[in-house]
């Protein structure tokens, strides 16, 4: 499986053509996972300056039910809209 994951997409396609239908059946789930991984990695690499470091801790401070704060922000947006 490790061999497959480091191959580029065209090499995976070539390898796939060279194996028998029975072998294709066996490796299909692995290919699906590998291609999914390649696509996800490509999408990830395309994003520049995301400031996300793998395995870094990012505590999530989700402000749940901060209705008073929400009201303040809505008023600010409304004022800004009126001034435009």
């Amino acid at each position: 499986m490790e061999t497959i994951t480091i191959l580029v997409e065209s090499e995976v396609a070539q390898l796939y053509r060279e194996v028998t239908p029975k072998q294709q059946q066996k490796i299909q789930p692995l290919l699906n996972n590998s291609l999914k991984e390649i696509l996800v990695n490509e999408l990830t690499e395309n994003k520049n300056n995301l400031n996300i470091i793998p395995n870094e801790d990012y505590p999530i401070y989700s402000p749940l039910n901060a209705f008073e704060a929400a009201d303040t922000l809505l008023k600010l947006l409304k004022e800004n809209k009126q001034n435009d």
């Binding site: 520049n48 300056n49 989700s62 402000p63 704060a69 929400a70």
Partner: peptide, 15 residues
């Protein structure tokens, strides 16, 4: 500034 924001539907406000 280009940054990465967490889409947090449980957060009442942007932070």
């Amino acid at each position: 500034l280009t940054v990465s924001g967490l889409l947090d539907s449980g957060a009442t406000v942007n932070v």
